[in-house]
Design a protein around this nucleic acid. Structure first.
Lengths: 126, 126
DNA sequence: ATTTGTGCAAACATTTTGCAATTTA
DNA sequence: TAAATTGCAAAATGTTTGCACAAAT
């Protein structure tokens, strides 16, 4: 992987505001500094960074989001505003081994996702 | 909601083989009985059935899958062949309350998803 | 000099929509 | 006959790709 100014800018954007932006959001933010960047470049670099394990894709049904924090943590999706928040507190899952027995295959990862209403939306509803 | 022959056929397909088909898979299967059905009708009915809570959508990143079993259970995605299996054994998640405290909002649901290699693919690799 | 990265436009895959015709209650 | 459903084609979305050119090693 060679060095690239555009890729740096993409990483910078991902690090600056950890709101798990979509490819399009990354594109808009990088454009403030590099107005000539194309969406294709953003997609290509995001895919490359994922492949290298430098960032992770957090599947949000039809619209992928990207997280520069690859440490083990969970995500909370607000069903009201659509924003995605990090959850760092430790969570444990019991019954994992039984699940593996049931499927007969090999479970390599378990992902937990929370849905609900975020603090702001909850306050706004009152 | 009025009665509809096509919607019945869609539900029948979903009930017959519980492999969590995509919209396109449902379309192909309904077409065996009703060759004139259009993909738009499939999508419209799937959306409607979801809204009514009769089926659930299980997000598989860019390609949605549908499950007629709305009871509480988990899914196991095989990363090798792409098939999706049910996991019915009980699973418990600890730390849920702490997560709610951390986000400050209200968690309405927690979803667990397993990834790995299914029994068949595991056997095929040997 | 060779490989890697880029912009652009076009292609692609999945899902949604407007509309006139058909079916259902 | 009024409301819901359908097929079709077109549009909308989100993402990927081919290609010629530019940048990095």
């Amino acid at each position: 992987m060679k060095h690239s100014t555009k890729r740096d800018a993409i990483c910078e954007v991902l690090g600056a505001k950890r709101d798990h932006p979509t490819a399009d959001m990354v594109y808009e933010r990088v454009r403030e500094k590099y107005p000539e960047i194309s969406l294709a470049t953003v997609y290509r670099n995001l895919a490359q960074l994922c492949a290298e394990g430098k960032i992770v894709k957090i599947g949000a049904t039809g619209r992928e989001r990207y997280d520069i924090d690859t440490s083990n943590h969970t995500h909370f999706f607000c069903d009201e505003c659509g924003d995605v928040y990090d959850v760092f507190c430790p969570l444990t899952l019991n019954g994992y081994k039984n699940a593996e027995n049931e499927v007969g295959g090999e479970i390599t990862s378990a992902s937990i996702t929370f849905h609900g209403i975020c603090r702001q939306c909850l306050a706004a509803k009152k």
